[in-house]
């Protein structure tokens, strides 16, 4: 059993999601998760669909102006950026909290041997520095 190198370890190699006749609906699991989170937050009343559509439209227009018009291959990246902005604007997930958590996951991912599920270290109660 080799525990070393799988240098090609790559998140995109997770089992392929189902396809329809026009190809995969989502190109990667994170796209599906970002999509589902958006629908669920809307259902919970965190934002209206109008607010969501406006935020996404802004994001797509900005990307276009920056010279990165969306040919639909980066669609969910813009989608995710819009979602992050909207939950920050709604004070549901402030930017700082998000940045901190990204760091934690990044760290956890680096510490996790390939093939093991990536998990965050257990929280020490409600963050009480000793």
């Amino acid at each position: 059993m080799t525990t070393s190198k799988r240098a090609d370890a790559d998140w995109s190699r997770l089992p392929a999601l189902p396809r329809d006749e026009s190809g995969p609906v989502f190109k990667a699991p994170w796209e599906a998760q970002a999509f589902a989170m958006t629908l669920e937050l809307h259902r919970k009343g965190v934002f209206t669909w109008r607010e969501w559509a406006d935020t996404l439209a802004h994001e797509l227009a900005d990307a276009s102006e920056r010279g990165h018009p969306d040919d639909s291959t980066h669609y969910y990246e813009h989608w995710l950026a819009a979602l992050e902005k909207l939950v920050a604007a709604k004070k549901v997930v402030p930017l700082a909290e998000m940045a901190c958590r990204i760091g934690e996951w990044d760290n956890a991912a680096r510490m996790t041997p390939h093939g093991k599920p990536i998990e965050l270290p257990p929280r020490q109660g409600k963050s009480s520095p000793v």
Binding site: S4, K5, R6, A7, A9, D10, W11, S12, A28, P29, W30, Q33, A34, M37, Y76, E77, L80, L83, E84, V87, V93, E97, M98, R101, I102, E104, W105, D106, A109, R110, T112, P113, H114, I118, L120
Partner: peptide, 19 residues
């Protein structure tokens, strides 16, 4: 070889979802 097994957006989605 284990470094950065999560791509940018996948990492952000994971962070957002856990929060």
């Amino acid at each position: 070889p284990h470094n950065a097994p999560l791509s940018g957006p996948a990492l952000r989605v994971k962070a957002l979802e856990s929060l």
